[in-house]
């Protein structure tokens, strides 16, 4: 599929269904969307609208039943599991709603995790990048702490640093502020916006918080498995 070089992600006519017990649920139904490089996009929709499903498909952590997904010129359907892992590691960063930090690793060790599987990165370079990521998210002083000693906002900053440390082209965030109070949530969104401008990283996150709509560059509404606006 020919792509505009500025389009980082193209989702074309994608369908995905799940079976819940006896019931078949059509989460996405012929959805198409393009994400430009450098965009800061919020995907807004009610619970069960297909937001997380779309994020999972773009993040290559799930597979569509039909349709095509092209990320940075690569058709992900042609990739095997190892190649998808490679793609995720180098081009995609994830920020989860529940942070998903490893409790037995310190802050800087958590951030270092994605770099461990890039053999071309030397230990010195790894340390440098981790420090830079810590600085970017503003938690350098907590680098030796374990996650259970941090607040929710601090944990999410660690998760953001982890997502950034590999210099990905795309960061996917699934409800990154859902488990935070509103003040912290705003701070996190501010941080993401700042990083978007500073590093030109494409952000695509989903949320059901309408209060965030006014602060992002592009808002996409999803309902019943298709893009509405």
């Amino acid at each position: 599929m020919a792509m505009n070089p500025e389009i980082l992600v193209r989702v074309h006519d994608v369908g995905k269904s799940y079976r819940l017990g006896e019931i078949q649920i059509q989460a996405l139904n012929g959805l198409s969307i393009d994400i430009q490089a450098g965009e800061f996009t919020a995907l807004i929709g009610a619970s069960g609208s297909g937001k997380s499903t779309l994020l999972n498909l773009i993040g290559c952590i799930d597979e569509p039943d039909r349709g095509a997904i092209v990320i940075d010129g690569q058709d992900v359907a042609r990739l095997d599991e190892v190649q998808k892992s490679e793609l995720r590691n180098r081009k995609i960063g994830f920020i989860f709603q529940s942070f998903n930090l490893i409790p037995v690793l310190t802050v800087e060790e958590n951030i270092e995790l994605p770099l461990l599987i890039q053999p071309e990165v030397s230990p010195v370079e790894r340390a440098r990048r981790v420090q830079a990521a810590l600085q970017d998210v503003g938690i350098a002083e907590y680098k030796s702490h374990y996650p259970d000693r941090l607040s929710g906002g601090q944990r999410q900053r660690v998760a953001i640093a982890r997502a950034l440390v590999t210099d990905p082209k795309l960061i996917l965030a699934d409800e990154p502020t859902a488990n935070l109070d509103s003040k912290t949530a705003h701070k996190i969104i501010d941080l993401l916006l700042e990083l978007n401008k500073k590093k030109n990283v494409t952000f695509f996150f989903c949320s059901h918080d309408e209060k965030l709509i006014g602060r992002v560059g592009r808002v996409v509404h999803i309902a019943d498995g298709v893009i509405k606006t």
Binding site: I61, S85, E86, N100, I117, R162
Partner: peptide, 16 residues
């Protein structure tokens, strides 16, 4: 399991 999923999401192959 969720930890394993996180590592996979970070790019860790199943063997890893």
């Amino acid at each position: 399991s969720r930890e394993m999923g996180t590592l996979r999401a970070l790019g860790y192959a199943p063997d890893r």
